[in-house]
Design a protein around this nucleic acid. Structure first.
Lengths: 366, 366
DNA sequence: TTGTATGCGTTATCAA
DNA sequence: TTGATAACGCATACAA
């Protein structure tokens, strides 16, 4: 069915002025009927509504209203251009869900602003009318939109990156949380562990990386989680996954499990990567956790996994809600401090004591 | 780090007028420097840019620009309030991804408009400035926002529901596609099949449903897919899942597998439900496809499943792209016809011939 | 409780 | 190529 191509329908849309005129009241009075900011006599209101119905007027034009009020009622959310990939991670979706919850109460909309190829000028989205911007999944330490938004005086909230003094951050202490997890694994008796990292660069391949390379990772959390591991285990073999997904996690863990000595535990920087590690172990005929322990990071729900991952729960839903709270205060003109979110260790069934070392070449006991 | 609470920063933001004044040109000329709609002498442009830099002016205010131009550059996307749940289905995410792709080229943003409790007045989102609205995941035949948007003359694109003559639909022929799939299963030799349906109502429980109940389902595709099955198999046992997810699919399929005679094939209305059916079969010690065949609907990627589902590929990414194309034309003022998307059958490894019936009670052959 | 008048920051039209 | 001016549709301060 074709839409609205009726030529006769090309009549200009009624405005508040038309309605007021028809109702025989002033524009300002008609405005009050819709905003409700001041009392209007019931009879007057009724007249206005009638006129509106007759004219097919459906309320004030949001754009004009926005201009007058100086607010658009919209929050911009900068998201990776490959939305698909980002939302394949329950962590991202859960966090958005928490944010949407707060925003729903606020009555503001969430505008997805896909980041595009770097270098495009002006950065896309800079012409969109938003009251504030959130960076929930950014993997860059710097972002072309930030100076732009700072210049426009648009408040920003982030979850770690990009890094800028104008961005209110809601985040966990990645290093400390990772160290707590690593300590648990250490206390179980593990001494040979491998670390699966998020991608160091946007388009890389799954490969072993050095401490020096990690120090230059674009994503701050990658560095910090790696430091958390080092705080407990010192230098350990590290493999950076090509993507933050299961398949890359599997490939990365497989590299680690091929080392000699084989790690007895794989610490992954996300739950999805950890799932991949479980797969890699199983593919080699290793049992988790009897032969290999595996841990993740995030604390997302993985109902289809059939087991509970040992992980750091950074409470993504709560994180999203806190971002929403920060936004609420910023929009109210209040000043907001950075928020540190508590991220407790969650013990699952994918970690256990390491296997007893196989007896050396059989021979007469000493 | 606190954001922008510097009291001295409360200076009013520079406008185009300030810039023009400082550059010694007319406002309209300064405007042209930013819009590029008419040529401006290089020297003049340079003066304007300089003045802008000095004043910290970062380009025209998007809201004012929108008002003047009558377009906001934003597309509204009505999404279920439980974003989390919706985006757990790769079908939804993939479709959004396809849409975002087209929209990215268009330079327009995507505004998420969560639908909230029915009956709220006015419907949320009616005060948001959007140039068009898409319904990608709506499960209601009618939607409170639709009359509102029709009244405002805002073009709409949907994927089946809500149903309204003003909405341009991009969809597949669910009945025909399902019938083609059912025919394949029939030709394999199956005669006892069970059908797993999407939820008939928002908050229901997983339970067996009658043909009469299905006829009143809120979601049109639920009805149409059920009809597709009936076209081939006639009346079959039907179970409506409580949610469109794996767990509910498992529960629903489990009900069917407990019937006598046990179905030799489970036809599910979505791939996620089908995954649940595979799980249910396995939990009963039944092999797929040797003991039970399972089919889905959607054609999403399920890399973690480790097998290929027999399904109808409704090419969600392409669907999203086509929605984007329809939007593009509508925004250009062109009229657009409904689009029917081809949805081919994809044979996987979850369907096969039914098992030979167990021999009846042993006895002397006739 | 209602009306009058002003301007939000731009862009389009037209004339120069 | 540039400038003056008039909208865009509304919400607010203030007066009545």
């Amino acid at each position: 069915m074709p839409a609205d191509q009726d030529p006769a329908a090309r009549t200009p849309r009624a405005t508040l002025r038309d309605v007021a005129l028809r109702a025989g009241v002033a524009i300002s009075t008609a405005s009050l009927v819709y905003s409700g900011k001041k009392p209007v006599a019931p009879a007057t209101a009724e007249k206005v509504r009638e006129a509106a119905t007759e004219l097919g007027y459906h309320g004030p034009d949001p754009i004009a209203s926005s201009l007058r009020q100086g607010r658009s009622g919209v929050i911009g959310a900068v998201v990776p251009s490959r939305l698909l990939h980002a939302f394949r991670d329950p962590y991202a979706v859960t966090m958005f869900d928490g944010l949407a919850e707060t925003l729903g109460d606020l009555g503001t909309g969430l505008l997805l602003m896909p980041e595009s190829a770097p270098g495009s000028e002006p950065p896309p989205g800079s012409n969109l009318a938003v009251d504030a911007v959130v960076f929930l999944l950014s993997s860059e330490e710097a972002h072309p939109l930030v100076p732009e938004l700072v210049g426009r005086g648009i408040p920003m909230v982030g979850t770690g990156s990009p890094v800028d003094p104008h961005i209110v951050q809601v985040r966990v202490d990645d290093r400390r949380a990772t160290a707590a997890l690593a300590r648990h694994v250490h206390e179980l008796g593990h001494r040979h562990v491998g670390h699966v990292l998020m991608p160091l660069q946007p388009d890389q391949v799954t490969r072993r990386v050095t401490r020096a390379e990690v120090a230059e990772a674009t994503l701050p959390i990658t560095r910090e989680r790696a430091e958390g591991v080092r705080d407990v285990f010192g230098d350990v073999p590290m493999v950076s996954a090509a993507e933050a997904d299961i398949e890359a996690g599997r490939a990365a863990a497989d590299l680690l499990l091929g080392l000699d000595p084989r790690p007895t535990a794989i610490l992954a920087q996300s739950d999805l990567l950890a799932v991949g590690a479980v797969r890699a172990a199983e593919a080699r005929g290793l049992r988790v956790p009897e032969d290999v322990s595996v841990s993740g990071f995030d604390g997302v729900e993985l109902p289809w996994l059939g087991r509970r991952l040992t992980t750091v729960d950074q409470r993504p839903a709560e994180k999203g809600r806190l971002v929403g709270e920060a936004l609420r205060h910023l929009l109210a003109g209040e000043s907001v401090e950075d928020v540190e979110l508590d991220a407790p260790l969650r013990l699952g069934d994918t970690t256990a004591a390491p296997p007893r070392p196989a007896p050396p070449t059989p021979g007469p006991p000493g």
